[in-house]
Amino acid sequence: MSDDLRDRLARLDPMSADVPVEPVTSETSRRLLEKVMSTQLKDRSASRRSTRSAWALPAAAVAALVIAIGGVIGLGISSDDGPTAATLELNAPAEDMMASCIMFSPEDLARVADIAFEGTVTSLNGSTVTLSVDTWFKGGDYTEVMLDAPLGMEALIGGIPFEAGSQYLISAQAGTVNYCGFSGPSTPEYRAAFQRAFGG
């Protein structure tokens, strides 16, 4: 029964194996791979910058278009295929999207956040951090949130030192999630500030 369903779904595949794609051995493909391999890896941040300019990657365009709100650092909200009832996905910024921080206050937190929750890290997988939500303070009812760092964990760790099993308070504004003191590891004081900000 289930295999029937899988086969039936597979027949809807618009890119099934009989649709040709560029073979890895073609001249175009070789050129692309050579270009990738000629990318310098001096240090991580330098290689990022050089590859961006060389390839005009979409990530660079995103970085340029993001507007940091009041100096708060942006995490784009990715609905990917549309938000689900259970999982919210948030993307970490490229490092060069990080701006200077403003002073933290519960009033400012309330002002810059339309999403706020406390969650426990359930997995750190590649560039993705998954949190199981313990408390929603504002703006959602998701049970799980995924934070995704398109350029790797460094970008996330640059803002918040995520560890599996630890609790974090995260705030976000539509299209922008906030670092710089507006999200971080849970402490009783910090939680109290979130509660004060959102009247919880």
Binding site: L65, S78, P83, G139, A174, G175
Partner: peptide, 22 residues
């Protein structure tokens, strides 16, 4: 994630206000 970033960039480029339940 790359496609998700592209879509986000394209949406921003169109100056659409992105909402959680968009």
């Amino acid at each position: 994630r790359t496609l998700a970033n592209q879509r986000r960039g394209q949406r921003r480029g169109l100056r659409l206000v992105e909402k959680l339940h968009s």
